[in-house]
């Protein structure tokens, strides 16, 4: 039973991190119907920026908690700035173009950003300091869940709640929902669609950066390529839950995290990814629009 709980919480941690990345995918998709292939790279840049800040501040001998918070803050700012700039360069000129062109542009952007970091920094794996301290009150449960996992789960929950609040109750959230439903109509009623799209990229990038810092300090190393695999997994999670739907992205991520965790724990670690993909294919065959996605009726 204890083993079950350990796997359950491991899956929850994993799923939370996928969720932070998947949110960006799903929000962008909901509004511009674009698979933002470079989203994983934003997450990677967030992790790198954090590492740079951490190294500089550690040399100056700052307090650990302060470093963690500042690094996370700077990572969020920079990731958002990259997301914003990326949208302006690679996607905005392609609003009217065929959708596949935007996809290729995203792939080009992803290659560019990967190699930009590779050339400006390094191709090696860099150790990332585990900055989250071990809390004392967690000690009795340390064999089931560590403090970093707890921090990850709590942070994700906070991000989710504030994001839901933002989408549901604020003006920009309303504008986002309107744009997702019908862009032309939203424009007609006075929504500044360009601003909404920029905001979506900024928010999505910010959550990805939080995910980047958390996962990097959890795993303990980063390199320029981490964004690609994490991006694919998060994308799978977003589609699993129903792309375009925010609760769907969270649910899909958690389900993906749990399946991977239980499968690795009880059956075999070799076929972990295979199983995740088979699961995805099976779900989509029975629910073609994802778990929470609404299948829209075709209008003729």
């Amino acid at each position: 039973m204890e083993y079950f709980f350990e796997l359950f919480l491991g899956g929850l941690t994993r799923g939370s991190i996928y969720a932070l990345i998947a949110l960006g995918y799903t929000m962008v998709y909901g509004i511009v119907q674009l698979i933002n292939f470079a989203h994983g790279e934003i997450y990677m840049i967030g992790a790198f920026t954090a590492l740079i800040v951490i190294s500089v501040l550690t040399m100056m001998g700052w307090n650990q908690i302060a470093i963690l918070l500042i690094a996370a803050g700077v990572a969020v700012i920079y990731s958002s700035a990259y997301g914003y700039t990326m949208e302006k360069i690679a996607y905005k000129p392609l609003r009217q173009a065929p959708r596949l062109s935007a996809l290729i542009s995203a792939i080009g952007m992803s290659l560019f950003l990967q190699n930009y970091v590779l050339l400006a920094q390094t191709s090696d794996f860099l150790p990332f300091p585990g900055l989250i301290p071990d809390f004392e009150f967690m000690e009795p449960y340390a064999h089931i869940i560590g403090s970093p996992e707890l921090v990850i789960i709590i942070t994700t929950t906070i991000v989710m709640i504030s994001l839901t609040f933002l989408i549901k109750f604020t003006k920009i959230g309303k504008a986002m929902r309107a744009t997702a439903q019908d862009r032309d109509m939203a424009m007609l009623v006075g929504v500044d669609v360009n601003r909404v799209i920029s905001m979506t990229f900024i928010i999505g990038s910010a959550t990805a950066a939080i995910g980047g810092v958390l996962i990097a300090s959890h795993i303990g190393q980063i390199n320029f390529y981490i964004g690609f695999i994490a991006g694919i997994k998060a994308f799978v999670a977003a589609v699993l839950g129903g792309i375009g739907s925010i609760p769907g992205a969270v649910l899909g991520s958690l389900i993906l995290g749990w399946t991977e965790s239980f499968f690795t724990g009880y059956i075999s670690s070799d076929y972990e990814d295979v199983f995740a993909f088979i699961f995805l294919v099976v779900i989509l065959i029975f629910r073609p629009a994802g778990i929470l996605g609404r299948s829209t009726a075709e209008k003729v």
Binding site: S101, S105, I107
Partner: peptide, 19 residues
């Protein structure tokens, strides 16, 4: 810089000649 250039070419191609 090859792959960097390649990525740039992909983006530019799509921006200026999406078809």
């Amino acid at each position: 810089y090859r792959i960097l250039a390649f990525g740039t070419v992909l983006v530019l191609m799509m921006v200026f000649r999406p078809g």
